[in-house]
Design a protein around this nucleic acid. Structure first.
Lengths: 163, 163
DNA sequence: ATGCTGGGTTCGCTTGACGAACCGTGCACG
DNA sequence: CGTGCACGGTTCGTCAAGCGAACCCAGCAT
């Protein structure tokens, strides 16, 4: 029996903004890397373990947490001539983390460059490189934080200027 | 003297793709939350500590790491009638993490909703909500991972179909 | 000289990560 | 029939990291 650690049991305030809440769910070590592999099509425990090099106990725990959070789901499968197992697949909720992963990857490609990026993403339709961008609902491209004004909606007013 | 932990000294492979590399830099607990506060304009140690509730020792260590990585820089300042101190400001490299933070926040807003999002971002020019999106250089909007084809550039071939 | 404030450091404890060893179920093969 | 083996874990001992509370130190004000 795995000790399933509840989501917000420790630290990570979450009340100030959703970054903390998201990190409470996927911010532990290996979680986002598990999801990276999931987006690359890796679904089985042994394959994840080999791709990541994470300790089995940790991987077991992360997978259980991600399933509990509805980011992955366990699906049975039958490799021919083997007993029934289950694999881990992304849910819609999990797939919504794709821009986050791409954003992390993009930053690393830009700022940690030891040569060319190890993995490039291209649009399946047209073959052009894929990247994240900030846009507003008015259709404008947002260049950075100086173009953005944060506005607190709850009672805890915090309307700081971003610089 | 703070024990500055080198960036890639432990775990986080980084060779496979840049997600691991980025997490090696900002993936420790509190790092991304420190940056969230930085984007909200918080610059001083005491303010960070109060906003986050992180232990001082951990905060000291994270700030030192972020400075060492060139994501924050220390700037002297003089509060009137007080001795000279220094504050932490984002560098360009740090500001490039903004889309990552927004992506994390957006996922939390969408999937952890207990009522309305605690913090809304709006375009300073037009007031419309700001969000991250995936686009390709051909100008198309990318809806999700199924529209993206990963391609490994290095010798370590890994071209899995994404589903 | 005394106290206060900002920015830390030190200390002892608890939690989490790590790797190696072990377990158990069920198919295949002899 | 029984033995092996592979997958998917669990258990264990060790070691690093996170934690809160207490302490420290420089300098300005009084």
């Amino acid at each position: 029996m795995v000790t399933i650690t509840g989501v917000s049991d420790a630290s990570y305030d979450r009340s100030r903004c959703s970054v903390a809440g998201t990190l409470a769910v996927v911010g532990e070590k290996w979680s986002l890397l598990v999801l990276r592999e999931a987006f690359l099509g890796v679904r089985r425990f042994a394959d994840l373990q080999q791709a990541l090099g994470a300790p089995k106990a940790v991987l077991t725990d992360r997978l259980a947490t991600l399933v509990q959070e509805g980011i992955l789901r366990k699906e049975p499968y039958q490799a021919d001539g083997a007993r029934q197992r289950h694999e881990y697949r992304l849910t819609d909720k999990g797939r919504d983390l794709y821009p986050t992963l791409v954003a992390l990857m993009q930053w690393g490609d830009r700022h940690l460059a030891d040569g060319p990026p190890p993995l490039a993403l291209e649009h399946a339709d047209c073959g052009a490189p894929v990247r994240v961008s900030l846009v507003c609902d008015g259709g404008h491209e947002v260049t950075g934080p100086h173009d953005v004004r944060p506005r607190a909606s709850a009672t805890t007013g915090r309307t700081a200027a971003v610089r």
